[in-house]
């Protein structure tokens, strides 16, 4: 090492070495840290247990759903379902009923005229 012109106080290194060794003794024994795998073990075991439980229960639930039959339903449940009106729309509301004037006209049609019309055209469909 080249001289860099630095000086140190007299007896510095001897005193420093003693001080450093004393520091290590005062701070107590150091111990080897537990390996990460040992620290992780409980959490890994818990995660595995949750996974196994999930695998065990999930297929059971799906089986129950697939085995459901129409015959298993209670009659009242079917009736309630059919009576439900989730959209608030009634088919009748879209059917335009004839007003009273037109129905009167229909009633006044000549029945003879209708019969003769039918007789004339019925042969077309035979």
């Amino acid at each position: 090492m080249k001289d860099q012109g630095f000086k140190i106080p007299k007896g510095y290194f001897e005193a420093k070495k003693d001080q450093l060794k004393a520091l290590a003794q005062e701070s107590g024994p150091v111990t080897k840290a537990a390996p990460k795998t040992r620290i992780l073990w409980p959490s890994l075991a818990a995660a595995a247990a949750v996974l196994i439980a999930a695998l065990f229960f999930l297929p059971l639930n799906s089986k129950q759903n697939s085995d459901l039959n129409f015959s298993d339903l209670q009659e009242q449940e079917v009736i309630d379902f059919l009576n439900q009106d989730p959209y608030g729309v009634y088919p009748e509301s879209f059917i335009e009923l004839p007003n009273s004037e037109s129905s009167e006209g229909f009633e006044n049609l000549d029945t003879k005229l209708i019969e003769s019309y039918l007789n004339e055209h019925s042969s077309e469909y035979l």
């Binding site: 450093l20 520091l23 290590a24 701070s27 150091v30 111990t31 080897k32 840290a33």
Partner: peptide, 10 residues
């Protein structure tokens, strides 16, 4: 040296 002492086991 303090750091080295603490890290020595690892």
């Amino acid at each position: 040296f303090i750091k080295a002492w603490k890290a020595l086991p690892s």
